[in-house]
Amino acid sequence: MTVRQVLADCGATDTLAVQISGPSGICLAEAEFDRKIAFEDLPTAGAFMIFDETRDMFEVARNFAHFFAHESCGFCTPCRVGTTLVRNIMDKIAKNHGSPYDINELFKLHRLMQGASHCGLGNSACNPMFDTLNKFRPAYERRLMSLNYEPAFDLDAALSQARQMTGRDDAAAHFDEHPENEAEA
C-alpha cells in the first residue's frame, strides 16, 4: 500500500506533506508518496497525518519542538536541555530573528541528541526539524533575517533601555540592522 493510495482512498487533495507515525516518525514530501507503508519501508504505529498546501511546515515542526520540550522527562542531559534549546531556536526563527547559524545549530543538536540520548524520545526529538529542513527548507529560509551571518542577539533591541534612559530616539542612537554592504565576517 503506497502513501498515494491512502491519500486517494481518504479523498485527500492538494497534499503538501504526510507525517507517518507521529512527531518522532518521518515527514514525507510529494516526491516520496509512492513509498510503501511496510516494515521494510515506512514502518508505522498507525498514525498518519496529512497536511495540505495551506499549511506551513515550519510551524508544524515548531509545534512538534514544543511538544518534545514538554514531554522530555529530564533524566538525561542531551534530551532535557536539548529539547529546550531546539524549542528556543525554533521560536527565535519564528520571530524572524534567526540566521543560517541557527539552522546549523539545529543540525548539531540533532546529531548529539540522536546518538547520546537515553531513550527514543530524545533520539527522535529532532526528526521533525531534520525532515522539514531537508524537504521544506524555504519554509525556514524565508523567516531568516539574513542568509548571511547574524549575531545571536539583536544589538539594536539591546540598546532600547539605554535609549529610554537618555531620552534619545534619533537615527544615531540606533544600529542599522541591514546595511547594504553587510559584512560576512
Binding site: T77, V81, G82, T84, L85, L109, R111, L112, A116
Partner: peptide, 13 residues
C-alpha cells in the same frame, strides 16, 4: 565535541 556540547548544556541550564 559532543561532550563539550553536553558540558555547555549543564552550564546554561
Amino acid at each position: 565535541d559532543k561532550r563539550r556540547t553536553l558540558l555547555q548544556m549543564f552550564f546554561v541550564e
